[in-house]
Computed example of a mutant assay.
Amino acid sequence: MSDPAESSAVRILVVDDDFRVAAVHAGFAAQVPGCTVVGEAHTAAEALTRIEADRPDLVLLDLYLPDGNGLDLIRAMRAMPEPPDVIVVSAANDVASVRASLQLGAVNYLVKPFSFADLSARLVAYRDARARMEELPGEATQADIDRLFGMRRPAAVPGPPVEASRLAPTLRLVYETVARGEASSASEVGAVVGISRATAQRYLTQLEQSGMLRLELRYGATGRPEHRYSVRRG
Results as ranks from 00 to 15, higher is better:
residue 1 M to A: 10
residue 4 P to K: 02
residue 6 E to G: 08
residue 8 S to W: 06
residue 8 S to V: 03
residue 9 A to S: 01
residue 9 A to P: 06
residue 12 I to E: 03
residue 12 I to S: 00
residue 13 L to S: 01
residue 14 V to W: 05
residue 14 V to A: 09
residue 14 V to L: 07
residue 19 F to H: 14
residue 19 F to I: 13
residue 20 R to F: 15
residue 21 V to P: 04
residue 21 V to S: 11
residue 21 V to D: 00
residue 22 A to S: 05
residue 28 F to Q: 00
residue 28 F to C: 04
residue 31 Q to A: 09
residue 33 P to G: 02
residue 34 G to P: 02
residue 34 G to N: 03
residue 34 G to F: 01
residue 35 C to H: 02
residue 36 T to F: 01
residue 36 T to N: 02
residue 36 T to M: 10
residue 41 A to K: 08
residue 42 H to D: 00
residue 43 T to N: 01
residue 44 A to K: 11
residue 49 T to H: 13
residue 54 D to Q: 14
residue 56 P to T: 02
residue 57 D to W: 09
residue 57 D to M: 10
residue 58 L to H: 05
residue 58 L to Q: 07
residue 59 V to Q: 03
residue 61 L to Y: 02
residue 61 L to H: 05
residue 63 L to F: 05
residue 66 P to Y: 00
residue 68 G to Y: 09
residue 75 R to I: 12
residue 78 R to Q: 13
residue 79 A to L: 12
residue 81 P to I: 15
residue 83 P to I: 06
residue 86 V to K: 03
residue 86 V to Q: 04
residue 87 I to Y: 03
residue 89 V to A: 13
residue 90 S to D: 07
residue 93 N to K: 14
residue 93 N to D: 15
residue 96 A to K: 11
residue 101 S to M: 06
residue 101 S to H: 06
residue 101 S to L: 07
residue 102 L to T: 13
residue 103 Q to H: 13
residue 108 N to F: 13
residue 109 Y to M: 05
residue 111 V to Y: 00
residue 112 K to P: 04
residue 113 P to A: 08
residue 114 F to M: 09
residue 115 S to M: 04
residue 118 D to V: 12
residue 118 D to F: 09
residue 119 L to H: 05
residue 120 S to V: 01
residue 121 A to Y: 06
residue 122 R to P: 06
residue 122 R to M: 14
residue 123 L to H: 03
residue 123 L to M: 01
residue 123 L to I: 08
residue 126 Y to P: 07
residue 127 R to W: 09
residue 127 R to L: 09
residue 127 R to A: 11
residue 129 A to K: 03
residue 130 R to P: 01
residue 131 A to R: 15
residue 134 E to T: 10
residue 136 L to W: 01
residue 137 P to K: 01
residue 138 G to K: 00
residue 139 E to M: 10
residue 142 Q to I: 10
residue 143 A to C: 06
residue 150 G to F: 09
residue 152 R to T: 15
residue 153 R to M: 11
residue 153 R to H: 13
residue 155 A to V: 09
residue 157 V to Q: 08
residue 158 P to Q: 01
residue 159 G to T: 05
residue 161 P to D: 07
residue 162 V to H: 08
residue 163 E to R: 12
residue 164 A to I: 13
residue 165 S to T: 12
residue 166 R to P: 06
residue 168 A to P: 14
residue 168 A to C: 00
residue 168 A to H: 14
residue 171 L to F: 11
residue 172 R to C: 10
residue 173 L to W: 02
residue 173 L to D: 12
residue 174 V to F: 01
residue 177 T to D: 00
residue 177 T to M: 05
residue 177 T to Y: 05
residue 182 E to T: 05
residue 182 E to Q: 14
residue 184 S to L: 04
residue 185 S to H: 06
residue 187 S to W: 14
residue 189 V to A: 01
residue 190 G to H: 05
residue 194 G to S: 02
residue 195 I to W: 04
residue 197 R to K: 14
residue 198 A to E: 10
residue 202 R to P: 00
residue 203 Y to A: 07
residue 205 T to N: 05
residue 207 L to V: 02
residue 208 E to R: 03
residue 209 Q to W: 05
residue 210 S to Y: 03
residue 212 M to W: 03
residue 215 L to M: 08
residue 216 E to A: 13
residue 218 R to S: 14
residue 218 R to Y: 13
residue 220 G to H: 10
residue 220 G to E: 10
residue 220 G to V: 06
residue 222 T to S: 15
residue 223 G to F: 14
residue 224 R to M: 10
residue 225 P to T: 04
residue 225 P to W: 07
residue 226 E to M: 15
residue 226 E to W: 09
residue 229 Y to H: 05
residue 230 S to T: 12
residue 234 G to A: 12
residue 234 G to Y: 06
